[in-house]
C-alpha cells in the first residue's frame, strides 16, 4: 500500500529548554489504514495530530501527507491542502453555532470554490448516509451529541479527503452514542477511508483501528497491529 502519511524525525518544542511535546518521531501510515494513537495526557497525541493536519509546524523534521511536504507550505498552501485532502473531527465537534447543519457541512466545499449544485448534492448525500438529513435546516445547538458528531463527520468528508483525522471523537459522548460513531468510522475505513484516530481509550483503539501507536513523553513507545478489530 502507498504511504499516505510520513513523519521523519519530527520534534516539536513549545518552549526552549522544556521537554519536547514530540521527540524524534518516525511514523508511516499507509493509505486505507486505520491507526489509533494512544497515550496518557501530555504524551503528544494532539500535537502529532495537529502536525499531520498542518495546524502546527514541527520544530525539526518533516511531515509528508499524500506526497506533499506540508511543513514546507505557507499558511495559504496548507489551508488549501487541508480542505482538499484532510477532514477533521474533534472531541467537542467544533461546529459553527450560527450556521445550519447544512451550512456547516457545505462550508469546506464553499471555501474550496466547489460549484453550488455539486456541493449541495454531496452534502445531501452525506447527510442521508449519516442519517441526519432531517436536521439539515436545524442549528447545532438543538442536536444531540451524537447528531452533532455526525454533522462534523459529514463536514469532514464533503470534499472527499484522502485522510480523516479524529481527535477523541467519542470523548464527549455517552457509551452507546460513542459506539454508534465508532461504527460510522469503521464503515468509512472499510470503504477505503484512511483514518488517524487519537484516543486515550484502549477499547476504542482496539475496536476501530487496525494498528495502535503508543506515545509516551513524546516518543513512540510501541506500534502494534491490533488483532482484535471486528
Amino acid at each position: 500500500m502507498d504511504t499516505l502519511i510520513r513523519l521523519d524525525d519530527v520534534t516539536k518544542r513549545y518552549d526552549n529548554g522544556g521537554r519536547p511535546a514530540l521527540d524524534g518521531v518516525r511514523l508511516e501510515i499507509a493509505a486505507g489504514e486505520a491507526v489509533a494513537v494512544m497515550g496518557p495526557s501530555g504524551s503528544g497525541k494532539s500535537t502529532l495530530l495537529n502536525l499531520v493536519a498542518g495546524l502546527d509546524r514541527p520544530t525539526r523534521g518533516t511531515v509528508t501527507v499524500a506526497g506533499q511536504r506540508i511543513d514546507d507550505l505557507g499558511e495559504t498552501g496548507v489551508a488549501r491542502f487541508r480542505r482538499q485532502q484532510i477532514g477533521m473531527i474533534f472531541q467537542f465537534f467544533n461546529l459553527l453555532d450560527d450556521l445550519t447543519v447544512a451550512d456547516n457541512v457545505l462550508l469546506p466545499a464553499q471555501l474550496a470554490g466547489v460549484p453550488r449544485a455539486t456541493a449541495r448534492a454531496r452534502a445531501d448525500e452525506l447527510l442521508a448516509a449519516l442519517r441526519i438529513a432531517q436536521h439539515a435546516s436545524a442549528y447545532p445547538a438543538r442536536l444531540s451529541g451524537g447528531e452533532r458528531q455526525r454533522v462534523a463527520i459529514a463536514r469532514a468528508l464533503v470534499n472527499r479527503p484522502a485522510l480523516l483525522l479524529a481527535d477523541e471523537p467519542t470523548g464527549a459522548l455517552d457509551t452507546e452514542t460513542g459506539e454508534q460513531i465508532g461504527d460510522v468510522l469503521l464503515d468509512l475505513n472499510r470503504s477505503g477511508q484512511t483514518l488517524l484516530l487519537v484516543t486515550h481509550n484502549p477499547d476504542l483503539a482496539a475496536r476501530y483501528a487496525a494498528r495502535t501507536v503508543q506515545l509516551v513523553d513524546g516518543k513512540i513507545a510501541s506500534d502494534v497491529v491490533n488483532g482484535a478489530r471486528r
Binding site: 495546524l55 488549501r80 459553527l96
Partner: peptide
C-alpha cells in the same frame, strides 16, 4: 477566536 480556529481548520486561507 475559537470560531476562527474552526474556519481555518476546515480550510479557510489567510486571505479568506
Amino acid at each position: 477566536v475559537h470560531d476562527l480556529g474552526i474556519f481555518k481548520a476546515v480550510g479557510m486561507t489567510p486571505r479568506q
